[in-house]
């Protein structure tokens, strides 16, 4: 009898706990809470500006508490959105397309930037994708990342198979990948700004042009995805959208202030940041460019099962091609 009672107790307790997970009670007077997740790099400058200038707070007519968290992959951000702990996630275009295709309840609320990407080799005998042998490792930040998709695009164009180099991939953070390339642990590193600038600056590395060419200069690199629950709160939604637009504006019109802000976030020299911001690929703008190009490729290559249309991907009011 005792056993049955304790089992029932466990059962009830378990149900309570499960119930507790989902409900995120908000009562009227308490400040609204919203969480924005982003990752590392200069491409997230609009988020940095938004946080430091309190742009959401300024645009929202009411009491709002904005929480900024830095995560290390688009996958982690996707999981946060699914779990309801993240409201807005900034990530590469590719994981965002995967997420929408898979039915993660979010859409693009803003565009962040375009950035430079490239594939560098430390082996003089490798200057084209065609010369990569099965045992040559390509370090990149994560499978499913925009870097992975760019590699696939380049491989499709050059080798005829988008997945031809999948088995060469070695997951490493950008910084680790750079160190691994330097140490010769990997032969190739597919990375993005600002790491790609540092690697290009070294004469001993060779850039394989296919990856750089796979994604037209000026096309979107990072987007901000907002959970569909945010749309229910029109005022907050608009405040966030405005804040993104203002921060892009801010970057483009106040380069010196932007450099000071970035100095805080990136912990780099002002001069270095200045040179990054001057790079021709490093552009901040509000419309999404290249969605269809990437979505079609991902569908064709089997990275996603379902194609993603502009309407499925963006909230109304976000311009997109």
């Amino acid at each position: 009898m005792k056993k049955i009672i304790s089992l029932v107790a466990i059962f009830v307790l378990g149900m309570f706990l499960l119930q507790g997970c989902g409900t995120n009670g908000q009562d009227g007077n308490a400040p609204k809470k919203i969480t924005i997740a982003y990752q590392g790099g200069i491409g997230y400058a609009p988020v940095h500006v938004m946080e430091s200038q309190k742009l959401i707070e300024k645009n929202y007519n009411g009491n709002v508490e904005v929480n900024y968290v830095k995560l290390d992959s688009g996958a982690a951000i996707n999981e946060g959105i699914i779990g309801g702990t993240i409201d807005i996630g900034c990530m590469g275009l590719a994981p965002a397309i995967s997420g929408v295709s898979k039915g993660i309840p979010y859409k693009a609320i803003a565009n962040l930037c375009s950035q430079s990407n490239g594939l560098m080799s430390n082996d003089a005998s490798i200057s084209s994708l065609k010369q990569i042998k099965p045992e040559d490792k390509i370090a990149l930040v994560s499978t499913g990342s925009i870097q992975h998709i760019l590699l696939g695009m380049a491989a499709e164009k050059t080798l005829g198979d988008a997945h031809a180099l999948d088995n060469n991939i070695q997951r490493m953070s950008h910084a680790e990948g750079m160190a691994a390339l330097e140490a010769g642990v990997v032969k190739l590193h597919l990375t993005s700004a600002p790491f790609i600038y540092q690697e290009r600056a070294q004469a001993k590395y060779i850039e394989l042009p296919e990856v750089k060419e796979a994604w037209p200069q000026g096309n979107t690199f990072l987007v901000a995805m907002a959970a569909t629950t945010l749309e229910n709160d029109k005022e907050l939604f608009e405040a966030v959208q405005k804040a993104f637009a203002q921060s892009v504006d801010y970057i483009n019109s106040n380069p010196d202030d932007t450099i000071s802000i970035e100095e805080q976030y990136l912990k780099l020299d002002k001069e270095v940041i200045k040179s990054y911001l001057k790079e021709p690929d490093c552009k901040f703008f509000t419309d999404i460019r290249g969605l269809r190009l990437m979505a079609e490729f991902m569908k064709r290559a089997g990275f996603v099962e379902k194609d993603v249309s502009k309407e499925q991907f963006c909230y109304g009011g976000v311009s997109c091609e």
Partner: peptide, 25 residues
């Protein structure tokens, strides 16, 4: 899960692929 190479694919790589490429929870 941290650095699993696609080439030497263990169960951690599987989880990671499911998580990052296939979004297959």
């Amino acid at each position: 899960m941290i650095f699993g190479a696609a080439q030497s694919a263990g169960i951690g790589v599987y989880i990671n692929n499911a998580r990052t490429i296939w979004l297959d929870y």
